[in-house]
Design a protein around this nucleic acid. Structure first.
Lengths: 218, 218
DNA sequence: ACCTGAACACCGTTCAAGT
DNA sequence: ACCTGAACACCGTTCAAGT
């Protein structure tokens, strides 16, 4: 039971309540009254901690992105052997997060003044997203030596990012049950196509030596 | 001025009003009162023509998809020489439509019973979308002879569709102004990467003969 | 039959009043 | 200072009443 006036613990109560409602009911049923109830505060109190529903949501998203950055660095991206494996690992970690948050909030839009987030909340969110992308880029660079110097890398990054998010959107909800292929098959197919496609479009001559030597695990 | 009791004209008034509000103000400001005002009916009347806001929106989307199918067939896909050009042409036509409708409604979700659309409205919507995809597939098949028989075509289609929608989402709103590359550059880069990537992932040996002979236009 | 518009339910947000 | 909860604004939707 958070004590009266303990703003640090109260803020954490509210964030935990938001996470709880979001995970149990999804964004569609995330409303401020439900969060207030779960955090055992009144609706008005929420607004002394977060400027708006969107700001609360952005704080939850930011926390999750920062956690993802650590997961990728410390676990998901270790022991891989090919760029394809990096993409697959990233997608498997990214899809559930996108499914909770990504569809609802536009990270880059906050930069463009698109949103009404308080500037500091927007900056934390963008920073966390940039850092996740940097992590992926670094891991890919291990197996694609030419990548960091490629002239059109600035095109490859938004292309891959967009394509991965398109797939994440595809896997959100029940619709992927419609075609006969499993989620896993499509994920692996996409990773192969993205890596080959970007290599070709960037004019990279070939993969890393480890790539051709590695046999598929499936 | 639509006459009292003319249900056909009234329905068209409502659809036209919906299109008008949507194009002027975007989905965020599309509300039933605004549509009713513009159509010069009362809010209650809307619900004798469309079961819900979503059903009205789906009808607008369906009409637009059917029009797109005709545009692709009769104009956009004629006189092209490579698969890349097909993808570029499709994206240029698709992005503005996605920007108005695609972000808000989940075509495939209606099939999965995800939505609460009346069944016939859902079926018309899905049919229009399927027909657009078939148009793209047919055009690609002209320049990729091996495509229709490829074993994993069933993976390639949702992959490309998802990637294109991810890019459409990327170009929605102002955020693409953030990186220094123009929309056109990213569109062309994506088309090249998608075509090369899918070819490689499907194990297609090579492009059509016209492809290598064509010089880049940029 | 077709249409109106007041009313209901719901939800983001505010603010005067409490402790 | 921090917190409450009634109230306001807005919007999807319904339905008794009008023509």
């Amino acid at each position: 039971m958070t004590k009266w006036g303990d703003r640090v613990a109260r803020r954490e109560d509210i964030l935990a309540a938001g996470r709880g409602v979001l995970e149990r009911d999804g964004y569609a049923r995330l409303n401020m009254r439900a969060v207030a109830d779960r955090a055992r505060v009144s609706p008005g109190t929420l607004y002394t901690y977060f400027a708006s529903k969107e700001a609360l949501f952005a704080a939850l998203y930011t926390d999750r992105l920062e956690e993802l950055g650590r997961e990728l660095r410390d676990e998901a991206f270790t022991g891989l052997h090919t760029a394809e494996e990096v993409i697959v690992a990233f997608m498997e970690h990214w899809f559930p997060i996108y499914s909770l948050f990504g569809h609802q909030i536009d990270v880059w839009g906050t930069l463009a003044g698109d949103s009404v987030l308080p500037p500091d909340a927007g900056q934390r969110l963008v920073g966390a997203a940039v850092s996740v992308i940097a992590e992926v880029r670094e891991a890919l660079g291990r197996f694609e030596p030419g990548l960091p110097e490629a002239a059109e890398l600035g095109l490859a990054v938004p292309f891959v990012w967009s394509a991965v998010n398109g797939l994440a959107e595809h896997f959100r909800g029940p619709r992927h049950g419609l075609h006969p292929h499993s989620r896993d098959e499509l994920t692996h197919f996409a990773a192969r196509a993205l890596v080959s496609g970007v290599r070709a479009a960037l004019g990279l001559t070939h993969a890393s030596p480890t790539h051709t030597a590695t046999t598929t695990r499936s």
